[in-house]
């Protein structure tokens, strides 16, 4: 969604039209909720975090300068809110120091995916995403689903594109490994 498409509603909200905000919420709620679910790993808590994100967005809206896309700005708030939530509960965000999974080749991974039945695939993929460390799940979602560049993701996650490139590579390896493990569990 381009900034121009959002700007009309942003201006209306700033002028005091609360209902115009519902258009923006409807536009971004799925992505914000998905990021929250994949970070806090609990649906009810993620719902709370996602709603809290939109409250923060509403309050901070007059300060939105339009330097980046509105969506990037919203995702940044969602990412930070989720991180704060994890930290507040005393859950240490998991990071991977030792890479226990080797990078798989495409043919190998396709074989793994083909073993899952169609109905099972989506469910397994969603479960696998929830098993990833919060940072990895965020990068994969923003890069492959939302198709954000590493430069744009660096604004969301406050890290350099080079660091994110390494993380993306590791996240892919980790996801591949989890999917393989899931298949072995099934067998």
């Amino acid at each position: 969604m381009s900034l121009q498409q959002d700007q009309y509603y942003i201006d209306k909200v700033i002028k005091g039209d609360t209902n115009a905000f519902s258009v923006l919420v409807d536009r971004y709620k799925h992505m914000v909720y998905t990021l929250a679910v994949r970070m806090v790993r609990n649906n009810e808590e993620a719902e709370e975090v996602a709603q809290d994100t939109f409250l923060k967005v509403y309050k901070a809206l007059p300060g939105f300068k339009g330097d980046s896309k509105f969506s990037t700005w919203v995702y940044k708030i969602a990412y930070n809110r989720s991180l704060d939530y994890i930290k507040r509960l005393g859950r240490v965000p998991e990071t991977t120091l030792i890479e226990e999974y080797a990078e798989h080749n495409k043919a190998n991974l396709e074989d793994v995916m083909d073993q899952f039945e169609m109905d099972d695939r989506k469910y397994t993929l969603k479960k696998a995403m929830k098993k990833l460390p919060p940072d990895y799940a965020t990068i994969l979602t923003l890069h492959y689903f939302e198709e954000l560049s590493l430069k744009e993701i660096s604004k969301v996650m406050d890290a350099s594109p080079d660091t994110l490139k390494v993380k993306l590579f590791r996240a892919r390896k980790r996801l591949g490994g989890i999917l393989k493990d899931k298949l072995q569990e099934k067998i």
Binding site: N19, S22, V25, D26, Y33, K122, L125, K126, F145
Partner: peptide, 27 residues
């Protein structure tokens, strides 16, 4: 090829669905 593969499976996983009254609650 791996990039394309991961893109495909992550798009396939799709997005999570928030509760039906999500927007109403926020407003």
């Amino acid at each position: 090829a791996l990039e394309a593969f991961y893109k495909e499976i992550i798009q396939e996983a799709g997005l999570e669905e928030p509760s039906a009254n999500f927007t109403t609650s926020v407003i």
